[in-house]
Design a protein around this nucleic acid. Structure first.
Lengths: 208, 208
DNA sequence: GTTCATAGGGATGGTGCCATCCCCCTCAAA
DNA sequence: TTTGAGGGGGATGGCACCATCCCTATGAAC
């Protein structure tokens, strides 16, 4: 059972990263630290296999690349055997190179890193590659989330609304089926169920 | 059924904010926009009751308070009847005051805003109060998340590990019972179940 | 010697989601 | 006229989690 530590001051983001890690690691114990002090005490208390670091922590000047790197360096030294992943909202290539020098295994921008993205990064790292992903605003469309729909229903609705012209519904069912490893028939069933719910509440977005 | 729009470039954070909003609003439809352009087209297409804005968007200089405020102003103008909430990682009192001038209903720092925090903010806003919460690193301890535990089991384990000396287990059961509106007996049952699982896998953190 | 917190469970009913298989109907294209 | 995409469902079994109630046993406190 692997142990991981997530160092990130923004609570919702830390929560999200912990969930991402949990989904990627399988059996694991994940600690979350909001501050540098809490991270230090966690690192002193226990061993970790994976450490996720956002260097923009309270008490450090976010515009000082020097301070940011010193935080990373201190964390890496405190757990030299762990896999270290730096994730930041203000990424740049100089910092990426410097982190790599410090022994960091992956350097990630927060923008453009979707659900499941961390899993792919960990796979890359497991192959001893340095994983580098700069922020990029890559969204093609707005997402939509509708309460009352189950996750499956929500997902197929989203996929269906993003369908490009000429693409048949059946193609979308196949796409979702591959994504979730289920039968296209099931995807179709979720879509029908979702549409029925939306019709009932008179909330049918375009794209039916 | 209310409609909300979340404008935030970091995908995981946007996701988390959408979940927060969904939990707070009940029946609702929530759109998520990664960029200013996507936000604009969403605002042009539909009406929204609530708009959540992170002014630090790609394409704008994050150090320029002028640019940040112009983003907020444009969004507010595009949906004058909506409740606008600004949430940012780099909050300061000048920007808060300026946002209030622009008609924003709440100004929140990302650090120190926990799960459920947005719900309280919305309650405040519903009472026509201006909700102001600056970032603060307020965590007392590291959180712990263990895979294989259900949410209930995870929560009671976390509460139990944060128990202060002298506090009895029973007190913690009551605390969790109030939090989730269940019987203390049930909380105790979850704790026992969690401990049994942890013992089975030899992963008993201190605090039993 | 009784009370109470704690340890360590068993059993139960309910609910929601998942995944699948089935049915019927319509309409257009080949 | 047969085939295939699509609309609109019903029924089912399995599973995980939730919430509750029940039982035994230990050990310290009063």
């Amino acid at each position: 059972m692997r142990r991981a530590l997530v160092i990130e001051d923004q609570d919702l983001m830390r929560q999200a990263l912990i969930v991402e890690l949990k989904d990627s690691l399988g059996d694991c114990i994940i600690a979350g630290a909001q501050t540098y002090a809490l991270a230090q005490s966690a690192l002193a208390d226990e061993m970790f296999d994976v450490v996720l670091i956002d260097p923009g922590l309270p008490g450090f000047d976010p515009t000082s690349s020097d301070q940011r790197l010193r935080v990373v360096e201190a964390i890496v030294r405190a757990a030299p055997s762990a896999v270290h992943i730096v994730i930041t909202g203000s990424d740049n290539d100089k910092e990426a190179a410097a982190c790599r020098e410090l022994g960091v295994a992956a350097y990630l921008g927060k923008t453009g890193l979707p659900r499941g993205g961390l899993g792919k990064v960990l796979e890359q790292v497991a192959r001893d590659e340095f994983s580098l992903r700069y922020s990029s605003a890559n969204a093609q469309a707005t997402e939509v989330h509708i309460s009352g729909l189950t996750p499956r229903e929500s997902r197929i609705t989203e996929l269906m609304m993003q369908r490009r012209p000429g693409e048949r519904r059946k193609d979308v069912f196949v796409k979702m089926a591959e994504e979730l490893r289920i039968e296209p028939n099931s995807a179709e069933r979720y879509f029908k169920q979702a549409r029925a719910k939306l019709l009932k509440y008179g909330r049918l977005p375009r794209g039916l």
